[in-house]
Design a protein around this nucleic acid. Structure first.
Lengths: 189, 189
DNA sequence: GTCTATAAGAAGATAGAC
DNA sequence: GTCTATCTTCTTATAGAC
């Protein structure tokens, strides 16, 4: 059997990230992750002392991925408006997943809000980091502190709103159209 | 022990409705419902042949409650605009629950979308009924078919957006303020 | 580090006495 | 109709061989 060492840890986190999103945290068992990863479930306790700790590691990993993507957007696009439009474009690329599983950040936050307040706060951190980055982009665009705050919340609410409605109404065309409208709205700011 | 007959059925549905909302469907066990209702869990199978069937009954019951409330709003308020504002006002009254558990319709739809497509469609029905009623109110206000459709979706997306953002950011003040803004937006239509 | 076996308890569901 | 006891399976988690 191959020995991947610490690489195994990251691999487990990657598989868990996907399954937690697609099936929900509570509905994903170590058995599921074991089958999807090919790693016996007994091993998980060598890397994580509990399932909750695995979720915390997943959240940390998602946070890191988010920050990497932010830096990437900052390097690739000079104009903050372009960065925001790119972010919205990403939503369009994820539309199939979004239609089935909802927003990765929003759905996790809501699920954990129902029976795990501690982990819910961790998940909410992701949301706050995203909001802060968006806010900063609006600041770069010359908006005041207050305007940037309001616009960042407005953008987030628009995104979350069309995701839930598209998901619940099972209407992908609606979702795609609304994403276009959000991009157009961004252009006007 | 008291014999409540068919009243028991409705009583179980009522307790389950609340618990499914507060804890999530998958995270609510028959044991939980038994403890909260005082009815032994073995009895549930006399009224419902499975947990999924109980959820279906809950969804049916919520649908009926929604329709009752619609009729009530129609009887109590002549102007369709007043009815819609009242509906938004209801969201404000539920704000504490919404902050903790999210939207009763939206969160259920997202949860079921992750591992129970059949039940998810049933939950989505609730959403569609709500949208249709909202659309009808806009029609009564003189909007065209297309305008009424768009406005109903816009209202729903606004509501869902501020719920998720308020919930994830743990900011009740934001939620309450945004509900006020939605009411003001309604006024302009 | 990796793997198997298994413990301890909770889940949904059923049987059958009353 | 109501209730208890129990079956089966699945869960998280641990023990211990290799």
């Amino acid at each position: 059997m191959p020995t991947r060492g610490e690489g195994n840890r990251q691999y487990i986190i990657g598989v868990a990230t996907r399954l937690f999103y697609q099936r929900g945290y509570n509905q994903t068992s170590f058995r599921d992750i074991a089958e999807a990863s090919g790693i016996p479930k007994g091993n998980f306790y060598y890397y994580f002392k509990s399932k909750d700790e695995l979720l915390n590691s997943v959240i940390d990993s998602v946070l890191e991925t988010m920050n990497q993507r932010f830096r990437q957007l900052e390097a690739e696009f000079d104009r903050p408006l372009s960065r925001l439009k790119q972010l919205v474009g990403l939503l369009g690329e994820m539309s199939d997943d979004v239609m089935q599983y909802g927003c990765p950040l929003g759905s996790l936050s809501v699920e954990l809000g129902k029976n795990n307040q501690e982990l819910k706060s961790s998940a909410s951190e992701l949301f706050k980091v995203l909001q802060n980055w968006i806010k900063q982009q609006f600041s770069y665009m010359g908006k005041s502190e207050r305007e940037a705050e309001n616009l960042s919340l407005e953008l987030l609410a628009k995104i979350q709103g069309v995701i839930i409605v598209g998901h619940a109404l099972e209407d992908k065309t609606y979702l795609l159209n609304e994403i276009q409208k959000i991009a157009a709205w961004l252009e006007q700011q």
